[in-house]
């Protein structure tokens, strides 16, 4: 397993990322690397800094210090970077949020198309065609002309995934994608994510879905108190955690 890791090229590299809110250290000089085509699951107790670290990858959170490299685009948080640098980095990253964040005043098709038109400059016809293909892929082509408020949570999240994929990102970030959904409904979304993983998309997923983390991810990262306390092969960590904190966390989670 470890051998396979070392041969693939690097998709994401976080070097010594640190962030403080006042006195509280949210991220404690964290470094992380994610290989192409790899699915990385991030687990850990609340407040560990998982979401914050994820959001640093596409700079929705600005770290105080540290270097972020995504598919060749590099941004050093210490220096002043331009909007252009930021746009270049974000072009390769797609993100799916816990609260979906669809645009309620636009219909589903427009939600998926608008960024294609404005960011990639695709003409409307092409953008809509691509959007329809993606909506078919997530099983929601029939909802194209409807408004998000008419869709269930699971449907909205799948639309959100389609919206992110429409920009052909090289990397997809998922911030607790199923936490706001009923367990049953969450399965629809996890199914789409599994398909994506099987197709070789580089994914980083912050999740509380331990089954998903165990079965689908190639690399598991456990965080607590702003640091990565353990990382490696998921099966290994789940059956035989090394760190006491990891053990504590897994026990609490798996005994529910």
């Amino acid at each position: 397993m470890q051998q396979k890791r070392l041969t693939k090229p690097m998709a994401i590299q976080l070097d010594s990322v640190a962030k403080k809110y006042g006195d509280h250290t949210v991220l404690n000089n964290v470094s992380l690397s994610v290989r192409e085509g790899e699915v990385t699951a991030m687990i850990g107790p609340s407040g560990a800094g998982k979401s914050t670290l994820l959001r640093c990858i596409n700079l929705l959170e600005r770290p105080d210090t540290g270097c972020i490299t995504v598919e060749g685009s590099q941004i050093d948080a210490g220096t002043n970077f331009t909007a252009k640098d930021l746009a270049a980095l974000r072009r390769n990253v797609g993100m799916v949020f816990q609260s979906f964040n669809l645009f309620p005043h636009l219909n589903v098709l427009r939600n998926v198309s608008i960024a294609q038109e404005r960011v990639l400059g695709r003409p409307r016809k092409d953008a809509d065609a691509r959007s329809m293909k993606l909506l078919e892929r997530v099983g929601l082509a029939d909802k194209a002309k409807q408004y998000p408020s008419r869709c269930s949570g699971g449907q909205q999240q799948r639309i959100a995934i389609a919206r992110a994929l429409a920009l052909d990102p090289r990397v997809m970030l998922f911030d607790e994608p199923t936490s706001a959904l009923d367990p049953e409904v969450g399965l629809e979304v996890l199914a789409v994510m599994k398909e994506l993983a099987a197709e070789g998309m580089t994914m980083v997923v912050v999740t509380h879905e331990m089954q998903f983390a165990r079965d689908v991810s190639d690399h598991l990262v456990v965080m607590a108190n702003g640091s990565i306390i353990e990382e490696g092969d998921p099966e290994q960590i789940f059956t035989n955690p090394v760190q006491p904190r990891t053990r504590e966390f897994l026990r609490a989670v798996l005994e529910r």
């Binding site: 596409n58 929705l60 909007a83 746009a87 974000r90 072009r91 990253v93 797609g94 993100m95 949020f97 609260s99 964040n101 669809l102 645009f103 309620p104 005043h105 636009l106 608008i114 960024a115 404005r118 960011v119 959100a160 919206r163 992110a164 920009l167």
Partner: peptide, 24 residues
């Protein structure tokens, strides 16, 4: 959250204002 999503999608601040924030 919507403003963040627009940013994550790579939309410029101006586009975000024009298409997402101002209409709503």
């Amino acid at each position: 959250g919507e403003v963040e999503a627009a940013g994550a999608l790579g939309m410029s601040r101006r586009d975000t204002l024009r298409f997402i924030v101002i209409p709503q």
